[in-house]
């Protein structure tokens, strides 16, 4: 792999496992490329200053705000958006918990929160307490819910996973607790 990219050389992207070539300004924020070029409108724009987290995507598995990420910085790396994550089975578990808890009202913050929580819940050390989840969500604003239902949903997933991995409990789960 060449270390220098030439002027106007196309940028190779890998979004949700699909490769594509982007041609255009390398500094264009990834969120705009996702939404306007790739049609992945699940990623939302709330502020463009990195505060609200509505544009959260995973970059090599780690959550980042895509409004502050120049598209060139995503070259040759794995980008996952809510459209990719929702195809995974563990996403459905979180979605069910969010629905039951009332974790989405207007829904505008929701995809970003789903992406952040997905990453947190499949991390080596998933959050264990409401305070842990609140810490994970520091970069995600929600104006509607007051967060309580969202924290409850995340903890419910943790609880289900703990139950599932406990000796007597049956059933497989995608969420790792350890």
């Amino acid at each position: 792999m060449s270390s220098m990219s030439e002027q106007n050389r196309s940028i190779s992207l890998r979004v949700n496992g699909v490769s594509s070539a982007y041609e255009g300004a390398p500094t264009r924020p990834l969120v705009d490329v996702l939404r306007d070029v790739l049609g992945l409108t699940g990623t939302k724009v709330g502020c463009r200053t990195g505060e609200c987290g509505a544009c959260t995507v995973l970059l090599d598995g780690q959550p980042v705000v895509s409004c502050l990420l120049p598209v060139a910085a995503a070259a040759d790396r794995d980008v996952e958006t809510v459209e990719g994550l929702r195809a995974k089975s563990h996403f459905a578990q979180l979605a069910a918990a969010m629905e039951a808890a009332g974790g989405s009202q207007c829904g505008y913050c929701t995809p970003g929160i789903m992406v952040t929580l997905s990453a947190a819940l499949s991390a080596d050390a998933p959050p264990q307490t409401a305070a842990d989840v609140a810490g994970v969500l520091k970069n995600n604003l929600c104006r509607c819910t007051g967060y309580q239902s969202i924290l409850a949903a995340a903890l419910e997933v943790v609880r289900q996973s703990t139950d599932a991995t406990a000796p007597q409990a049956g059933g497989e789960t995608e969420w790792a607790t350890k």
Binding site: G50, G53, Q62, V64, T116, N139
Partner: peptide, 9 residues
């Protein structure tokens, strides 16, 4: 510094 997403960058 910021939150998780900012700290990752």
């Amino acid at each position: 510094v910021g939150g998780w997403q900012i700290q990752n960058r």
